Amino acid sequence: MTAGREPAVAVFGATGCVGRAVTAALVRARRPVVGVARHGPSHPGGDRFLALDAAAVDPGELSGLLRAAGVDTVVNATGGWVTGEAENKRVHLHLVENLLAALARTPGRTRLVQIGSVHEYGPLPAGTAASETYGPRPETAYARSKLAGADAVLRATREGLVDGVVLRAVNLCGPEAADVGFLGAVVRQLRDATPERPAELTVAQAHRDYLDVRDLAEAVLAATAAPVTGQVINVGRGEAVPVAHLVDLLVAAAGRPPGAVRLRAAPVDSRGGDWTRVDVGRAIRSLGWRPTVELPESIKDMWDASREDHSVEQS
């Protein structure tokens, strides 16, 4: 690290939904940021950008790049819904293992904030608020690979290779999420909906814990400096909201005329089951964090961002 330079935070997956929000939160906090992703961003953020595939780059080379950039903290915001067991392992496990191998070559213990997923718990019984002690039983390739990546971070922390913490995040909404996930799909259908060509929305009778991505970013910011290590910390609102209610909020935000939207109830057929809700007590106690963006505001901002043709890039 160059003498006199303030240590930087490297955000892996900087061009994705979560990475952009995290970068913005760090910049607001006046933290130097090094963005890392496979492709350069169309909306630059932070102080420096490294275009590389973190799953394939040589760990020694990656370690040298991070040292040269003065990085002492890393946020792993990579990943997303991909197809197949092999690709999920590459994106959510092999990338993490490669990153850990690089950080093991870096002097000192780098702070590593791994952004995990509520899906690591697997399907939850209705009425459950999963705490961090709940035994994970993931059933999908995505969830299994995300859990394996989280376990790798915790194992490396126990071995003294990194100073790691895992934030297990719930489903996301908000302006940076305008084109991803189920709600992003609803946004895309609503953009072109008219009475002559109505949006046909199939809404499952499910309840999910949804969080504004900006609130997640604030939790990540807190975790970069909080004196907690080797732990899993749930990050959500701690509420199970009917998915149909969120769709209603989006339709209202879109201001579509009568007849432009047709809703149809259907059985749950998704990767997340019909219920997600987490206990956020540990986040409140250990990070000093609470969600602040209410869902109606988040959903409206999500719609407004989509109207600005906000593009989402792959991390």
Score class of each variant (00 low, 15 high):
Leu201Lys: 02
Ala37Asp: 14
Val118Met: 07
Val22Lys: 05
Pro198Thr: 03
Asp179Ala: 15
Val74Asn: 03
Arg5Glu: 11
Val293Pro: 01
Glu120Trp: 09
His245Gln: 14
Ala217Leu: 10
Glu196Thr: 02
Ala102His: 12
Thr128Arg: 11
Ala193Glu: 03
Gly79Met: 00
Ser145Lys: 10
Asp47His: 11
Phe12Gly: 03
Trp289His: 09
Ala199Asp: 02
Thr292Tyr: 00
Gly46Gln: 03
Thr202Leu: 14
His245Lys: 12
Pro107Gln: 13
Ala244Asp: 10
Val186Gln: 00
Arg188His: 13
Ala3Glu: 11
Leu26Met: 14
Leu95Tyr: 06
Leu295Arg: 06
Glu85Val: 13
Thr15His: 07
Arg237Ala: 11
Val166Leu: 02
Val36Ser: 04
Val9Lys: 02
Lys146Gln: 08
Leu147Tyr: 10
Met1Gln: 14
Pro125Phe: 03
Ile115Tyr: 04
Leu167Ile: 09
Gly164Asp: 02
Gly149Arg: 06
Ser42Leu: 15
Gly70Trp: 07
Ala226Gln: 05
Asp72Phe: 01
Gly80Glu: 01
Pro258Asp: 06
Arg214Lys: 07
Arg137Pro: 00
Glu61Trp: 14
Val162Gly: 05
Val203Glu: 03
Asp301Gln: 13
Thr229Val: 14
Val180Gly: 02
Glu200Val: 12
Val186Trp: 04
Pro32Val: 12
Ala8Met: 08
Arg197Lys: 12
Pro227Ala: 07
Ala56Gly: 00
Ala253Gln: 09
Ala77Gly: 02
Arg105His: 10
Asp301Asn: 15
His245Ile: 02
Pro195Trp: 10
Glu297Phe: 02
Thr78Asn: 10
Ala223Gln: 07
Asp248Val: 11
Val118Ala: 15
Ser315Arg: 05
Ala223Arg: 13
Lys146Asp: 00
Leu100His: 04
Pro32Thr: 08
Ala21Val: 04
Thr106Arg: 15
Asp274Trp: 15
Leu183Cys: 05
Val228Ala: 15
Gly122Lys: 07
